[in-house]
Design a protein around this nucleic acid. Structure first.
Lengths: 121, 121
DNA sequence: CAACTCCGACAGTTGACGCTAACGTTCGTC
DNA sequence: GACGAACGTTAGCGTCAACTGTCGGAGTTG
């Protein structure tokens, strides 16, 4: 896959930065179980509704939140699609890191045993 | 359920906050492919070695980096284990969000069609 | 021991982020 | 049309993190 896409990198950055805040993660967990209006979400925390509104904006801008209008209220729920890019990023990093670790361990063991390590640039 | 462990939450928070910075993600990608000394890592960016050193400290403190001494140099490589908690967190969120979305869609369709919703709540 | 290299630690500055308070907008009701 | 409710938006403030420059420690070399 084209892992050099700046679009995907930007999306991953947004999602990661949004998830880096504990409050936002809590909000996301809250709306992952059920659809809730902004007021009810705000009542679950000890901060003002404004702060929650901003957090909701960040999450929505990061593609992690889905908004639905219902009269004066706006219902929010988590958007699983927003986590796909992040999971792909983590998966790729995980695989590469494991491969590198195994390769380095083998190379070091080769050096320690006999010292015929190749491609030790 | 072991999902309420504050230890895991703290580890996830540290890893997430560390990965939220694009520079640190680039560093992690760099050392995911091969083991590199701090100087070589610093030369790959347009910032001072001090900044890179601090980034390395953050990554190491978050459990995402592995340090190995080699004379005056210190080789760094990515640590795949540090990403395990994060992947678990994302996986759980993903599953919950998908289930909730499907449930809500079914409920709404039931209301729209005829209104014989069987109280899936 | 002295000189050089590589690297981390400390203090200071600047930009970004989160929180609060006041206001504007949209929708529902009388 | 007027009033109230729910929510987002803007401006201001405080705080945290990233970046820079300088210094000190650890290790190799002569």
């Amino acid at each position: 896959m084209s892992g050099d896409d700046p679009r995907a990198e930007q999306a991953t950055d947004d999602a990661l930065r949004a998830l880096a805040e504990p409050r936002r993660r809590a909000i996301l967990r809250l709306v992952a179980d059920a659809e809730l209006p902004a007021g009810q979400i705000a009542e679950a925390f000890d901060v003002t509704r404004t702060a929650i509104s901003q957090h909701l904006s960040v999450l929505k801008n990061a593609g992690l939140l889905h908004e639905r209008r219902d009269g004066t209220r706006r219902l929010y729920r988590a958007r699983a699609e927003g986590l796909a890019g992040l999971q792909a990023f983590l998966d790729q990093m995980w695989a590469t890191s494991l491969q590198t670790a195994a390769r380095l361990v083998e190379a070091e063991r080769g050096v320690t045993d006999g010292g015929h390590a190749d491609a030790a640039g």
